[in-house]
Design a protein around this nucleic acid. Sequence first.
DNA 1: GTGGTCTAGACCACA
DNA 2: GTGGTCTAGACCACC
Lengths: 128, 128, 128, 128
Amino acid sequence: MLQIQVITGSKVPIYRQVVDQIRSAIGSGAVAIGQPLPSVRSLAGELVVNPNTIAKAYAALVADGVVESQQGRGYFVAQRREIYTKAERTRRLDEAVGPMVAEALSLGFSEQEIIGAISKHFQKLGKS
Amino acid sequence: MLQIQVITGSKVPIYRQVVDQIRSAIGSGAVAIGQPLPSVRSLAGELVVNPNTIAKAYAALVADGVVESQQGRGYFVAQRREIYTKAERTRRLDEAVGPMVAEALSLGFSEQEIIGAISKHFQKLGKS
Amino acid sequence: MLQIQVITGSKVPIYRQVVDQIRSAIGSGAVAIGQPLPSVRSLAGELVVNPNTIAKAYAALVADGVVESQQGRGYFVAQRREIYTKAERTRRLDEAVGPMVAEALSLGFSEQEIIGAISKHFQKLGKS
Amino acid sequence: MLQIQVITGSKVPIYRQVVDQIRSAIGSGAVAIGQPLPSVRSLAGELVVNPNTIAKAYAALVADGVVESQQGRGYFVAQRREIYTKAERTRRLDEAVGPMVAEALSLGFSEQEIIGAISKHFQKLGKS
DNA sequence: GTGGTCTAGACCACA
DNA sequence: GTGGTCTAGACCACC
């Protein structure tokens, strides 16, 4: 079952939160290939956000190839395919790690504390 | 020596790249307390960006208490001090970890791979 | 209702005047948590200043955790939270008190008169 | 005896610190009318600051009428004279109080705590 | 519509 | 020389 939560006050834009959470759900196997996603309207209603925002999130997922739209039927989890080369994936990972480490360092956290926070984050993800 | 590189056209804004790199340099001890930062104009010239952009980056560092400005003299690495409460520090760390993990997951990386990337990042910081 | 007035040509910069007045309004409870602030463009138009100046003021308020921004929606009064350590709060208070007292002393005011002016100031805040 | 201390890292410019402290010393009667001030060079040497900075401070004091220069002899404490009208003095006091209260409020301090900090500040002034 | 970033260029204050 | 403020105007991202 697909459980999505959005934090309106966050610095991360809403449509991005939706994209990330759906990607994570698909990546972790929580939703299987071929399964339908909630309709734009229903998800928008559930999260109390603008339908345009959900539509934009779905469009981004389609553009990335992790979701397919079937005219008139809805959106479905696509066959998993590698879009990025390994080098590109690593580059993107490093690009995400850098700012996070910079922030943590200036807050006075050590490498161990950072890794601990990540483990804790994963535990929370697993539970919910 | 403080070496800064910016990628124009990146998704992360230029001033943010500057902030992150200076934070990392200070946080990892690459630049010592009391040392002067390059002047706004000189760094702007070096990176071929507008001085205002550098000024914005430096202002952010001042707001975080990482550096101090002295009118007419320049910017200097500040004495390290505890500015934020534990709760606030944790909150900010989590806020930085969340999007990073989401990005990594959507790229198909595992928890172990993420932690590995962080360790690698720290090694790179130590060496330079 | 948030009423802001700026004095151009004053020694204290415009963006600072805006910051101070909004801080006072929030700190004294004149505007409630969650309420939206005027949009950057509208306030800029009202005060006849450049939008960038208002943006700078709002950014400072965000850095202090007093307000929060939501992309595409606006700025909102943030939930009150303890951001700074006790030491840092005291340090900042002293840093604000020092110059103010020096100015008052040089104008020939006594300690009692200064305290009186502060009480009067609070009364004015409460009334408006 | 005139004891001056400057804090280089402060947000208050050095020349302003010098002006404020000399004004306070004169205002409180610590230095009597007609007494000489230290020479620009000696004070600059003592405080380890640029002589231009001291010269600027003295010039500001002369402009305000609390100090007089006697060509070739030095600077002397002038006859005290009221430069500002009462309304003007009050206006300036309020102008100094406003930002300080705004800062304190956003730091979460109460009126009583602010007044306490001021009293403490005066005690510290008296002791030194 | 909202905020966020960047540029170009001006003027002032400080050391 | 240094930083600090402000303006004018552009382009982008988000809702």
